[in-house]
């Protein structure tokens, strides 16, 4: 069996007793080295999951395990070494006056020796493609570049899980692409799980599995291909379906028989071409 890195067992959470549950009996697990996307409408509880995972919030009911250890006030400091977070607004998470100082911040807090810090800063900036900006001021970078530096800062402490909480929401399409490419690049070199909270369906398509949240509940956990096959369920949850999935739906209505649920242009065109040759 694959190693489970994060487990939620019947977790419920609300901010105050007088308020409704934000998460209601949520259970799932995330494997080591897995890429999981969490999608859901605004207010569905996605970000709450992220905050529970590293102990920023504590559930009223249920249990959260990270690497087999329950998340409790006693264990959160140990657990936070293993979970890195990148937030939505790149401007709210910079502390350093240069890119390298910023990446150094997390390492300093954890008391790494200088030699090791220098090595890690260099390595991680290289991995996110920002090595040419080591001495630049973070606030002068583009949105995509800022988020790459934020990812480098998280990578430097070598966590087992990196959570990106709508980390691309404020970026332009080019910035979004930069982040996706950076994530792929990092994934090739590290054993790290990515948990990506997002609305962008192009990002969801690249995940290993997708967790669909609605009204504080998990409504679906499956690979993207299976998720997008259940279009009605997605739409009921206030979500959209990608262009290709919509087109496949309409083609199917017209009697075109596609063998699997194509996820991208290439897959759909390949199937259409095959049908064309067999006409």
């Amino acid at each position: 069996m694959e190693k489970r890195i994060v487990t939620f067992r019947n977790v419920s959470f609300r901010y105050r007793e007088s308020l409704p549950w934000v998460l209601n009996n949520v259970s799932f697990s995330i494997n080591a080295d897995e890429w999981v996307a969490i999608i859901g409408h605004n207010g569905s509880g996605k970000s709450t999951i992220a905050k529970l995972m590293n102990g920023l919030l504590t559930p009223q009911e249920g249990e959260i395990l990270v690497n087999g250890t329950p998340v409790t006030p006693e264990t959160i400091w140990e657990i936070r070494k293993n979970i890195g977070m990148v937030f939505q607004n790149p401007d709210n998470q910079f502390v350093g006056t240069t890119v390298q100082d910023d990446v150094a911040f997390g390492l300093e807090n954890r008391g790494f020796p200088r030699k090791e810090m220098v090595k890690r800063i260099k390595q991680t900036l290289l991995q996110v493609g920002m090595e040419a900006y080591t001495l630049h001021e973070p606030h002068r970078l583009s949105g995509g570049q800022k988020q790459r530096v934020a990812i480098a800062g998280v990578l430097a402490i070598a966590p087992q899980v990196i959570i990106l909480d709508e980390a691309t929401a404020m970026l332009d399409p080019r910035g979004r692409l930069e982040i996706m490419e950076t994530m792929h690049h990092v994934k090739e070199q590290h054993n790290v799980s990515f948990i990506m909270i997002t609305h962008d369906l192009k990002e969801v398509v690249r995940a290993d599995r997708v967790i669909v949240m609605s009204e504080g509940k998990v409504v679906e956990i499956a690979p993207p291909r299976d998720i997008f096959a259940k279009k009605e369920k997605l739409q009921q949850s206030g979500l959209d379906i990608p262009f290709v999935a919509k087109l496949v739906d309409e083609l199917t209505k017209l009697g075109t028989k596609l063998s699997k649920e194509p996820l991208n242009h290439d897959e759909l065109l390949e199937e259409l071409w095959t049908l064309y040759l067999k006409r």
Binding site: E250, T256, L272, Y276
Partner: peptide
């Protein structure tokens, strides 16, 4: 791929599907 141009004329996905269906 098909060597056939389907021009963009503001068609909806429904329209596009029937154009593709005719094409294949």
């Amino acid at each position: 791929i098909f060597g056939v141009k389907i021009p963009y004329q503001g068609q909806s996905i429904v329209d596009l599907a029937s154009e593709l269906n005719r094409l294949i």
